[in-house]
Structure formats: structure tokens, C-alpha cells
């Protein structure tokens, strides 16, 4: 099957999307787009509803800052809330890996 040969080639040689060179280009491209969205505000008028949200680059700063805050809050809460994956399992019960059994049972389609 041609699929198999394609797979083995892909395995030997990294997929183009995950080559370090591509990733570097993606970062550069992404940075340019980010800069453009901020710079564009000098041309396009962003209507502010409450004063501060009309500031130059407010969306960018607010988006980044609120994400930073949410990730940090999640991190701190995680210290308190995180438990091992089998936390709720009865001590005696066998570990059932969710879906693997079902897939074996149900792989009936021929595509």
C-alpha cells in the first residue's frame, strides 16, 4: 500500500511542519502578524466603550494579561486541587483505561 511507504518516509524524515526551520519561520510570521494587529490600530479606529478600551493596543495587552493571570491562577489552584488520575478509584478495583476496550469491540467499520 502506498500509505505505508509514505508513513515510513515521514517517520525517517521529520514532517515539514515540525522541522525546527519551519517552527522558526512560524514564530517569525506569527510575530509579524501580532505586530501588524497592533500597528493597524493607528489606521483603523477602535471604538472604546469605557475609555480605557480605546487605548492604543488595549486589546493586545488585555488579552495577554488576562491569559497570564488565568494561567497563574490555574497553576496556584492546581497545587490545591490536582490529584492523581486514579484518585476516585476504589482501592480494590482494576484500572479500566476508559476507551481502549470499547474500540477493540467496536472497530467494525471497514474504511
Amino acid at each position: 500500500m502506498s500509505d505505508n511507504s509514505k508513513h515510513s518516509q515521514a517517520d525517517e524524515q521529520l514532517h515539514w511542519l515540525v522541522r525546527p526551520a519551519t517552527i522558526r519561520k512560524l514564530w517569525i510570521g506569527f510575530s509579524v502578524v501580532l505586530a501588524l494587529t497592533v500597528v493597524a490600530q493607528s489606521v483603523i479606529y477602535v471604538k472604546g466603550y469605557f475609555g480605557i478600551d480605546a487605548w492604543f493596543g488595549f486589546g493586545a495587552v488585555y488579552g495577554f494579561a488576562s491569559c497570564l493571570l488565568m494561567v497563574l491562577v490555574a497553576k496556584v489552584l492546581g497545587v490545591v486541587l490536582k490529584r492523581p488520575g486514579d484518585y476516585y478509584q476504589e482501592p480494590g478495583a482494576t484500572h479500566s483505561t476508559n476507551d481502549s476496550k470499547r474500540v477493540v469491540e467496536e472497530s467494525v467499520d471497514g474504511t
Partner: peptide, 23 residues
């Protein structure tokens, strides 16, 4: 779709994307 609103959301979302990869 007003230019200002689209730009605002693009800033907001793309910079949260940046936050994701930075963090």
C-alpha cells in the same frame, strides 16, 4: 463586522495565542 471590532478581537485573541505559547 466593523473594522474596529474585528481588529480589537484579533488583538485580543492573537495575543492570548502568544500567551499560550509563552506560558
Amino acid at each position: 463586522y466593523t473594522a474596529g471590532k474585528v481588529l480589537f478581537y484579533l488583538q485580543l485573541l492573537l495575543f492570548s495565542g502568544l500567551a499560550f505559547f509563552v506560558l
